[in-house]
Design a protein around this nucleic acid. Structure first.
Length: 1003
RNA sequence: GGGCGAGUGGCGGAAUUGGCAGACGCGCAGGCUUCAGGUGCCUGUGUCCGCAAGGACGUGGGGGUUCAAGUCCCCCCUCGCCCACCA
């Protein structure tokens, strides 16, 4: 931990604490523990760490014993006590659940958990039936890697880590319903993760109805002949009746939302697994271990999230989410509107290159084409010989001394071995090669050469582009590189030419860069259609209309979003409920066979292959041969099967945990429909009322979870189209971190400051600020703060340092401020020496009472908006007044004390409960009514308003709260100083905002 | 390169959305308590000039709108996050 005070010993052997000054360097907090603190002059009943710890343990035990935070469901196993809350409104408050890491929590982790707890407690006191719990996202690579290193089973370490985190979170006094705490690694939980996978596998997307439907309904339609078996798996477009059993199965499989595909994946041979993009570093190496990562095609399970692209985009409008997060999701989905255009390939009748473009208005300017290197059409159209007179430049660098097929192979090899990151490092320098083929621009009949280049990506659009160098910067650069013609078809404005020192009639071949803005069409006409003189929007409409007429293209929409790669070659994840028969055909297991439990194995080591080994990866589960091979009767008699040995990615379990909290013990269904409707079924989109978590999950988790939820919605398993109605991103806690001259982080707690410089072990280090955590070696353990100040102080500190959505630096030094606030409030209520209350039933004076009610109003406002920092500031101000009252009167007015205890209850529940009990109240105040302000006390009889002359404050006057504008002006003129300054000046204008200010404008 | 967000005292941050900039807290200074250190309590604390009264300046920089700008508009600088050859 950070140290602020220096511990030394007096000659008598008593400990001394010296404030850290620049000379003294590192120092240690004075509130280490009672046992080492000089206690002779500390009053017995002072609120300090020791007393706080005592109070906190007492109330945590009581809450547990009394089931204070057990939240009743309307029906089912958890329905006890529902009658008592049936008339309350429901409220579902949710935290993004944590991965149970081995090092436990640091004080940066619980910021959001404290925020939701304060809000949940506040809303409970406002009469809501509040659901708030906490589970564990416990599958994942760290536990598995720890298992490889130590031989300990991941389940053992995971359970130990969960137990430790539960202990740390319990010590914070979070009001969670412990019965609903699930871990994604529980077989009772992942049984339902597998069940959802079966729903995905057993569903297809009906474009006409725009929803997923059970695969049985597809089969029915195919068999009845009401639907044709259109599919890549049916290339000859045969009728259903003409397909054999295997072909029929292939067609149906190709419709499923969960399907097997050959995908290009991040394959890390050293780790023996594929990695998600997030697990690959900026250098193109594995985040863990820094091993090289390669792109390789592997047969993997995929989820067809792309079919939901439009709904995932459109339904963002229903959600109360930060605009920045919505924007990130929109960008990730990446919807582009444009057209698909077919370019006929020369010398190949009936072969077209289909391209997607957002600028069909520039079609007349397409002077060449580019295919992605791995585009399947390349092999079809590449000729054996170079065409006559093909320019030398087009074949450089990869086609020299080679025939076209060799040039293609050569460039493909070059492109495949280049990582994404290497490409970026090269500053998007354009490479590629002519493949010897030509295509025909459908507008003007130009024969345009066809290239392959890695700036065209197979995964986006059609994997092929028409290149319009005059109006696309990338195409422009490529055209320069290969000496290709540049044809301008949109006329830039005159200023554009002027800014580049060009004549306004300079041809595109003389432009220094592409013109990508709007403009008037030119050189864009043929016998049938002309875009000349049209602006961009009109030109797009016109050309799309023409393309559709002649059958050469149509309007089209494309997305950046790709289908979700769903397989991992890992042990510590959910097994797939899939088996393969002896022909290698996959079969879904029936629901009755769930859960498919992970077999116990002892060797978690991934299969390490050489970097260039082309062998197929073998997941650890493949070695559990007793488990892998089995005999089953899946309706065709007892047969041999082999289990799927990949596991699901960590995202799977986090896609639906919020549903299981609702009905965690249900053995018959995922969640009881009535219970689901009760907790999820309100608001525009429905869903969780408040979901709090870090912005780092802006895209992946939140997109995946929305996707699963929509599938469950389409199939009738949940009642709302969206899972999370209101999303709130809490900030991160940062802290000073230090690096030595090698750039390595050093333990921040051991750094000392001297004269504005920092030293570690006597060596000067450089200070940075960064997110608190293990990697920057600047973590502060909550246990240390509990010990030195108590959990209530930690809660209050984290809520006080700023608005919940702002990042803020951790400063152990500042904690003392909120601790002293609690200490002073306690002292205002409890005599520090005797422990007796000094609370009086004599009413508070008018001004104190007014401030009390204004504070109540402000705290209620701020709590509802999650602006806890200003609520706390108002409570501090009220306490400062209370302190003066107690000093003058010798006791505290009960009405103020009671209200303050209730207002503190959500923030610092332990000390609030303790004072509540000492005030003679029975039971927990968790369900007490939050104070209501007396509206009559919120407005003052008189207000002080500033008087300005030419906008500068020159005086202040007090006027009745309901004074008219004229009264304001009169009062202002009556002020001696104002009168003096106005004497002899000409008042040209008087601006009065009643209750706000008066401004004299003088000439 | 593109997108989003943010720049307010020595520090964390307030400011009813155009109306007294700096609430509340930390730190710092002085005082009381104390042999002393610490704790606790009281007072002060944006900068500059002034003994004071008071005055000038002041929300990253420059310009503008307005009786009035931290807040609205334009240009620029810095930092953070996200995406990054997406046709």
């Amino acid at each position: 931990m950070e140290v602020l005070y220096q511990l030394s010993y007096s000659p008598e052997g008593r400990p001394r604490y010296q404030r850290g000054s620049r000379d003294l360097g590192p120092v240690r907090s004075p509130r280490m523990s009672e046992s080492v603190r000089p206690s002779s002059d500390v009053p017995t009943y002072r609120y300090n760490a020791a007393l706080a710890n005592e109070i906190e343990a007492k109330w945590q035990d009581r809450w547990d014993a009394a089931h204070t935070f057990w939240t009743p469901n309307p029906t089912g196993d958890l329905a006890d006590g529902f009658a008592d809350v049936a008339d309350r409104r429901k409220l579902y408050v949710l935290d993004m659940f944590p991965y149970p890491s081995g090092v436990g929590l640091h004080v940066g982790h619980p910021l959001g958990y404290i925020g939701t707890d304060v809000y949940a407690r506040y809303m409970r006191m406002q009469g809501h039936n509040v659901l708030h719990s906490m589970g564990y996202d416990a599958f994942g690579l760290p536990a598995e890697q720890y298992a490889v290193q130590t031989g300990q089973h991941p389940r053992a370490t995971t359970e130990a880590n969960i137990a430790n985190m539960r202990r740390q979170l319990r010590a914070l006094g979070l009001g969670h319903d412990p019965r609903r705490s699930v871990a994604t690694t529980d077989p009772d939980y992942y049984r339902w993760t597998q069940w959802i996978f079966l729903r995905l596998h057993g569903a297809w997307y009906d474009d006409a109805q725009d929803r997923a439907r059970p695969i049985e309904e597809l089969l029915e339609e195919l068999e009845e002949g009401t639907r044709a078996p259109d599919s890549d798996a049916n290339p000859d477009a045969l009728a259903w009746i003409d397909l054999d059993a295997g072909a029929r199965r292939a067609v149906v499989d190709s419709y499923r939302l969960a399907y097997l595909d050959d995908a290009l994946v991040n394959w890390c041979p050293a780790l023996g697994t594929v990695l998600s993009n997030e697990e690959v570093t900026a250098e193109g190496r594995s985040d863990r271990g820094n091993h090289p990562v390669f792109r390789r095609p592997l047969t993997q399970w995929m989820l067809r999230i792309t079919t939901y692209a439009d709904r995932l985009l459109a339904d963002l409008d229903l959600l109360d989410w930060p605009e920045s997060i919505k924007l990130m999701q929109r960008n990730w989905i990446g919807r582009s509107v444009g057209a698909e255009v077919a370019f006929p390939v020369e010398e190949h009748a009936n072969v077209d290159i289909d391209v997607f473009t957002t600028r069909p208005d520039t079609l007349f300017g397409a002077t060449y084409m580019v295919l992605a290197p791995e585009h399947p059409l390349v092999d079809v159209i590449v000729p054996d010989q170079w065409p006559q007179d093909s320019p030398f430049e087009w074949r450089a660098t990869f086609g020299l001394d080679k025939l076209p097929p060799e040039a293609v192979a050569s460039y493909r090899e070059f492109a495949a071995q280049k990582s994404e990151l290497e490409r970026q490092a090269e500053g998007h320098e354009k490479t590629g090669v002519f493949i010897g083929a030509f295509a025909k621009n459908p507008t003007n009949g130009w024969n345009v050469p066809v290239f392959i280049a890695d700036y065209v990506l197979m995964g986006y659009g059609t994997g092929a582009i028409m290149a319009v160098p005059a109006h696309d910067q990338r195409d422009f650069e490529f055209a320069n590189e290969f000496d290709l013609p540049v044809a301008g078809v949109v006329r830039p404005p005159d200023e554009w030419f002027a800014a580049r020192g060009l004549d306004t009639d300079a041809p595109a071949s003389e432009w220094p860069e592409a013109y990508t803005g709007d403009g008037v069409g030119m050189a864009s006409s043929n016998d049938d259609v002309s875009l000349d003189g049209l602006d961009m929007a009109a030109a797009k409409d016109r050309i799309i209309g023409w393309l559709e007429e002649i059958g050469a293209g149509e309007a089209a929409v494309t997305y950046k979003l790709r289908d979700w790669l769903f397989s991992r070659q890992r042990y510590w994840g959910e097994p797939f409920p899939i088996v393969y028969d002896t022909e290698g055909v996959g079969h879904a297991l029936p629901e009755s066979m769930l859960p498919v439990e992970l077999p116990d194995i002892t060797d978690f080591e991934p299969l390490i292959l050489a970097e260039d080994d082309g062998a197929l990866p073998e997941p650890p589960l493949a070695r559990a041969t007793d488990w892998v091979y089995l005999q089953l009767d899946l309706g065709e008699g007892l047969r041999e099967y082999r289990r799927e040995t990949n596991t699901m990615p960590q995202w799977a379990g986090s896609c639906w945990y919020y549903l299981r909290y609702l009905d965690p013990t249900n053995g018959a269904t995922l969640v009881d429909p009535g219970i689901e409707r009760y907790w999820m079924g309100e608001g525009r989109s429905g869903g969780v009322d408040l979901y709090v978590g870090g912005a780092e999950h802006a895209v992946l988790h939140l997109l995946y979870a929305r996707f699963w939820h929509k599938v469950l919605y389409d199939l009738g398993h949940v009642s709302t189209p969206e899972p999370f109605h209101r999303l709130f991103n809490q900030g991160t806690i940062t802290a000073a971190a230090y690096t030595d001259d090698r750039g390595t982080y050093v333990e921040a707690s051991q750094v000392e400051e001297r004269d504005g410089s920092w030293f570690h072990d006597g060596v000067e280090v450089i200070r940075h600020d960064g997110k608190m955590g293990k990697s920057l070696k600047n973590a502060v353990a909550p246990d240390d703060i509990y010990r030195d100040y108590g959990a209530d102080t930690l809660r209050l500190y984290e809520m006080f340092t700023g608005p919940l959505d702002a990042s803020r630096p951790w400063s152990t030094q500042d904690i003392v401020g909120v601790h002293k606030f609690l200490q002073r409030f306690w002292r205002n209520v409890v005599d520090e020496d005797s422990g007796e209350l000094h609370v009086t039933d004599v009413p508070a004076d008018d001004e104190t009472r007014r401030q009390l009610h204004k504070t109540i109003a402000k705290v209620r406002d701020d709590m509802a908006k999650l602006e806890f920092n200003t609520a706390i500031a108002a409570l501090m101000e009220l306490n400062n007044r209370l302190t003066r009252v107690v000093q003058q009167e010798g006791s505290a007015p009960r009405e103020v004390v009671t209200a303050m205890v209730l207002m503190l209850a959500p923030l610092t529940p332990h000390v609030a409960e303790e004072l509540w009990e000492r005030l003679g109240k029975a039971g927990s105040l968790a369900y007490a009514d939050f104070p209501e302000p007396d509206a009559g006390l919120l407005v003052d009889d008189t207000v002080e308003v500033p008087v300005q002359i030419n906008g500068k404050v020159r005086g202040k006057v007090t006027v009745p709260a309901d004074a008219s504008e004229a009264d304001h002006e009169a009062a202002a003129r009556a002020d001696a100083r104002v009168a003096e300054l106005l004497a002899g000046a000409t008042v040209r204008k008087v601006v009065v905002v009643p209750g706000r200010m008066v401004n004299f404008v003088v000439g």
